[in-house]
Design a protein around this nucleic acid. Structure first.
Lengths: 219, 219
DNA sequence: ACAGAATTCTAAGGAACATTAGAACATCAC
DNA sequence: GTGATGTTCTAATGTTCCTTAGAATTCTGT
């Protein structure tokens, strides 16, 4: 056991680290970023057992990273504060810069960033009014309805192949899904490119947009 | 065992969290912030066993947070990159805002921030040329020699009581020691106030200064 | 080459954590 | 009320982590 004088301070600091030291908890935080979920929804979305999900959520709540709200028989969780979302973004960027393995795994999952050429939320914000840019929301219609990038076209991934002709060939298409590690928008970009479109994913997805410029949310 | 598809991504992300999930490792990172230490020096400074110190350092190195350098028979560690220092500062601020317990423990150790009224590095930077502001370095002479705030007066804590008359009574004194949780500068501030001086600690100490404006370091 | 010093490697006991089953606790529909 | 549903609590298992002792490694000085 460590015995240095400042131990209690660093023990408290470590509580945040411990909260971030588990893949399931990090996944739950990403799911909860700018959304609210019940325990059951989170368990399903994360592919984790219900009881384990509940236990991890309480761990996160103990670290003041999430808050819960009882709504009848269900309990809904959300991030405790917008600061948590901001910090999560910084944390993920920092981890990506530190760990070559992380970059490799992300690349394997989502595709090579050099090929995909993601657009940042800032860049997209500056080009929102450009008529040659079409913003494509490939999440479900329900997610689109809960908030989306202003001017975005809703086209859930399952419908994309059949609705390609709705998209102007001359435009540059920026496709996004929910989170920073969501595989849907890279897949959409690849499909679009196979059909001759110029397409890019939005970096960090809707979460990235909300973090950078939540004030311009459309609903 | 978690089974969701993105598990490998979040497992990698969790590596950084795990590195930050231990009080000893956080303490070592703070010690290494803007300084270089051998394993033995770190073990002594942190009050942790040598073998444990070595083991934790290797954990930090595996996460690419520190690098090591062999110098004869000794091994010196330092932060892998200035980004690590920046992130550490963000992490500590974030933890302080999330955890009331942390604020309480810090307050118990260092004193109530409302009473101490720490000066931020930015504020100090703007007032460096003010002749009514005296910057006081209460670290050891060796630490002073390795780098200090420009214009600072070196007066190690042990000599402070006997050298009070070297300080002008009319001035506002900003005292600093090394790290964000260093207890020396708050003690110096209390001693100075007892003797009628107007004194404040520098927020996050020399580390905070180096993080904010390392370009203005004096040596 | 040899002795000595600093650090790391290996191994092992004990503590903390993840995960899941079953019980308990709320809340809603009736 | 009673029963059904969603969530949390308690207990128990296996896993990972912390810490330290002893052996091995690497380099210095002679």
């Amino acid at each position: 056991m460590a015995e240095f004088v400042e131990e209690p301070i660093y023990a408290q600091l470590a509580r945040i680290g411990k909260a971030l030291a588990n893949p399931v908890r990090l996944r739950l935080l990403d799911l909860l970023d700018h959304r609210e979920f019940t325990v059951e929804q989170l368990a399903t979305a994360a592919g984790v057992g219900l009881k384990n999900t509940s236990a991890q959520l309480q761990h996160l709540r103990a670290a003041n990273l999430v808050t819960s709200r009882k709504d009848g028989t269900r309990v809904s969780y959300r991030l405790a504060d917008p600061q948590v979302s901001t910090f999560l973004g910084l944390y993920q960027d920092f981890a990506g810069e530190r760990l070559a393995d992380l970059r490799q795994v992300v690349s394997d999952h989502l595709g090579d960033p050099e090929t995909l050429q993601p657009v940042t939320a800032e860049e997209l914000g500056q080009r929102l009014d450009d008529p040659h840019v079409v913003v494509l929301d490939v999440r479900s219609a329900a997610e689109f309805d809960q908030g989306h990038v202003p001017g975005a076209v809703s086209m859930p991934m399952g419908e994309l192949r059949d609705r390609l002709d709705e998209l102007p060939r001359a435009a540059t298409i920026v496709a996004y899904c929910q989170g920073p590690y969501c595989v849907v928008s890279p897949n959409a970009v690849r499909l679009l490119r196979e059909h001759g479109y110029r397409a890019h994913p939005l970096d960090s997805g809707f979460t990235g947009w909300a973090r950078a410029g939540g004030q311009r949310l459309a609903s």
